[in-house]
């Protein structure tokens, strides 16, 4: 009986952990807003909500897949060639999403352009591989990748939405006022300003 109870408790603990593991990426350890990783695509692709979301989801795909594979093969890799091996795994999944988007989402692929292959050097992906997947099991790594990736996607989507609303007076492509917005928000400077205030706001919440 006690054994069973203990077992149940252990199981509950694990689900709790998984849940925590999943949600930490959204606010508390949000990769871009708190840990300041992956800033380049954050600034470069968030000219609209849909662009930010697609970039975030593409990154999530790579993050989840590479986390799974790396946690599977972590014991087969000698320590000294750890990083190059991880990079090859990540680069392969980046190429997969690159080809898939070219084939099935050509419109979005064109807007995101160079930033798709550059997911390779997004510090979030290698960072999670090194910090989490190389030390944890497959399931936990998968959840970690999914949580972090979706947290990243959410941040990109919100930033994209804010810039789209202010800059072109539309949201998810739907124009709600037929006029020009504050153009600077869809241009380069607006990306920097938007991210700056976004980080400041999240800091306030995390306190």
């Amino acid at each position: 009986m006690t054994v069973l109870l203990l077992h149940l408790k252990k199981k509950e603990d694990r689900t709790m952990n998984n849940w925590k593991n999943f949600t930490k990426g959204f606010i508390k350890e949000n990769p871009v807003l708190v840990m300041l990783l992956g800033c380049c695509p954050t600034l470069g692709t968030t000219t609209s909500a849909i662009n930010g979301l697609s970039m975030g989801l593409a990154t999530t795909f790579v993050l989840v897949c590479s986390n799974i594979v790396i946690s599977l093969i972590k014991n087969l890799i000698p320590d000294k060639v750890r990083i190059p091996s991880y990079i090859v795994v990540i680069a392969s999944f980046v190429t997969v999403i690159d080809l898939l988007m070219q084939a099935y989402l050509p419109g979005i692929y064109e807007t995101l352009g160079l930033f798709i292959p550059l997911i390779v050097v997004n510090c979030i992906v290698l960072g999670r591989a090194e910090a989490f997947a190389s030390k944890n099991g497959v399931w936990a790594s998968c959840v970690d990748g999914l949580g972090m990736g979706l947290g990243y996607a959410l941040a990109l989507m919100i930033l994209g939405a804010v810039r789209e609303v202010l800059g072109s007076l539309s949201i998810f492509g739907w124009q709600f006022i037929q006029a020009d917005g504050i153009l600077v928000f869809v241009l380069a400077p607006g990306a920097f300003f938007g991210l700056a205030y976004f980080i400041a706001v999240v800091r306030r919440f995390n306190k």
Binding site: L36, L187, A188, P189, G190, F192, A196, Y197, I199, R203
Partner: peptide, 21 residues
């Protein structure tokens, strides 16, 4: 307080980006 460090730096970068435009 909330703007110290990276946010302030990003605002500066934004103004620089404006200048480079």
């Amino acid at each position: 307080e909330g703007m110290k460090g990276v946010p302030a730096a990003l605002v500066v970068a934004g103004i620089l980006a404006l200048a480079f435009m």
